[in-house]
Amino acid sequence: MATPNTPLWEVFIRSRNGLAHKHVGSLHASDATMALQAARDIYTRRGEGLSIWVVPSTAITASDPAEKGMMFEPAESKIYRHPTFYEVPEEVGHM
């Protein structure tokens, strides 16, 4: 007797002031309020966070790992975007 599926939520936690929210895991809850409370209990039992985001998992659109070559190729071929691409004479010093 499987109970109806309770929605899945992704949990993001800001661990310290000034840092970004980081994905820590997921949980099931029937609504956003319960998801936040469950996230507090499951993922911050030892003061791991100052702020929690919960996002319905279905709201996330992810890139396809099988297509990652094509997806990220535009960045890979542009080595001139990196500072090391350029030559600066030693005499100039740190730049």
Partner: peptide
């Protein structure tokens, strides 16, 4: 990402 919806 732990998204169930994306599992295949």
């Amino acid at each position: 990402m732990y998204t169930q919806a994306l599992n295949t």
